[in-house]
Design a protein around this nucleic acid. Structure first.
Length: 293
RNA sequence: GCAGGGGUAGUGAAGCGGUCAAACACAACAGACUGUAAAUCUGUCGGCAUAUGCCUUCGCAAGUUCGAAUCUUGCCCCCUGUA
């Protein structure tokens, strides 16, 4: 096959809030149309974090190749830039096999990094960052003025100010249009339905043994790693220390997941290139597009 | 029954005569966000109104006071101790 036709293979992008059902839909379609799935999820990249991140099991993957799962240890660093590089590599490989890449996930930044071809600034120097973290916001602002560094949009967010300093005013860029071969679908879910689904999934996680998994991870890697900051892990930590009951834990986990879903939707909403559809509509729409290739 | 503590906005919880529509936390809602993104940050949050504006609130009722969430009395609930 010529390179041109390989590039012409579409990139299917399925986004949506947590528990919207995007993963199951992607698997179904990928199976049917020779797809391979790249998970754009900042938590499932970690190994050993299976239950708590609702990582699809081998059975659930049902023969469809999945990429981006278990890439690093929970105590290792993984960034959006890492994801972008990884995903682009995988997309090439998948297309070389004549298959269709599906990017599926709830981490909007990861998805956009690929879809809008972000160019990232300089990687952070950890020692230097630690120094900046000791400073107050006020001092950081002063540092920026003194060094002629433009403050970020959200200048009250210390992390962003530090990042601006690290990038030293270097401009970053992104395309205004999604890469040409992409078909982006967002799973639109009624709020009440989504809430119910989230509560149901939390229940499932506990049945599957998240507490044991989290306990093991906490012992092995500590509770402070970036990987363990994900919503339910800190809660399980508190529970294990006896500061809340199991029912309280489940309730708070649901709340925290709901808040995640809200933030995900806020991110996605500003992308005008998303075709929003219910799960069924999305299936029909994508089937049609894929069948006509 | 007696002694003591308490009932404050969706929840928890400050306030204990004026500067109180009432701190703070959580939830809720909206938003920002390119190398931590399941992270981090911002705004709103009694009602109405674009506004330094009006209206209705601090268990219920009646008082004291120029003025009460804050003091008094009665009533209704709750918790702790004790008969």
């Amino acid at each position: 096959m010529a390179t041109r036709s390989l590039d012409a293979l579409p990139l299917i992008v399925i986004v949506g809030p947590t528990a919207s059902g995007k993963t199951a839909l992607a698997i179904e379609l990928a199976k049917q149309y020779n797809g391979e799935i790249i998970c754009a999820d900042s938590r499932t990249v970690y190994r050993e974090m299976n239950i708590g991140t609702a990582k699809p099991t081998v059975e659930e993957q049902s023969g469809v190749p999945h990429w981006g799962l278990g890439l690093v240890r929970p105590d290792e660093k993984f960034t959006a830039a890492d994801f972008k590089g990884y995903a682009e590599q995988k997309m090439r490989e998948i297309r070389q096999r004549g298959h269709i890449p599906f990017i599926v996930g709830g981490t909007g930044l990861y998805v956009d990094a690929v879809v809008f071809d972000y160019s990232f600034g300089e990687e952070a120097d950890q020692d230097r960052r630690a120094e900046f973290e000791k400073m107050t916001l006020e001092r950081l602002h002063k540092y920026c003025t003194n060094n002629n560094i433009k403050l970020p949009e959200n200048k009250l967010n210390k992390r962003y100010v530090i990042r601006a300093i690290e990038q030293n005013g270097q401009p970053t860029s992104r395309n205004s249009e999604p890469i040409s071969t992409s078909i982006i679908v967002g799973i639109a879910t009624d709020k009440d339905v989504l809430r119910t689904r989230i509560a149901g999934r939390i229940e499932q996680l506990f049945d599957d043994g998240v507490v044991d998994e989290a306990s093991m991870l906490g012992k092995k890697y500590g509770w402070e790693t970036a990987a363990m900051t994900g919503n339910i892990y800190p809660l399980i930590h508190e529970y294990l220390e006896g500061s809340m009951s199991l029912s309280e834990l489940k309730e708070k986990s649901t709340t925290v997941d709901w808040r995640l879903a809200k933030r995900q939707l806020t991110w996605l909403r500003r992308n005008p290139h998303i075709y929003w559809a219910s799960l069924d509509e999305a299936r029909d729409y994508l089937s049609e597009r894929l069948a006509s290739l």
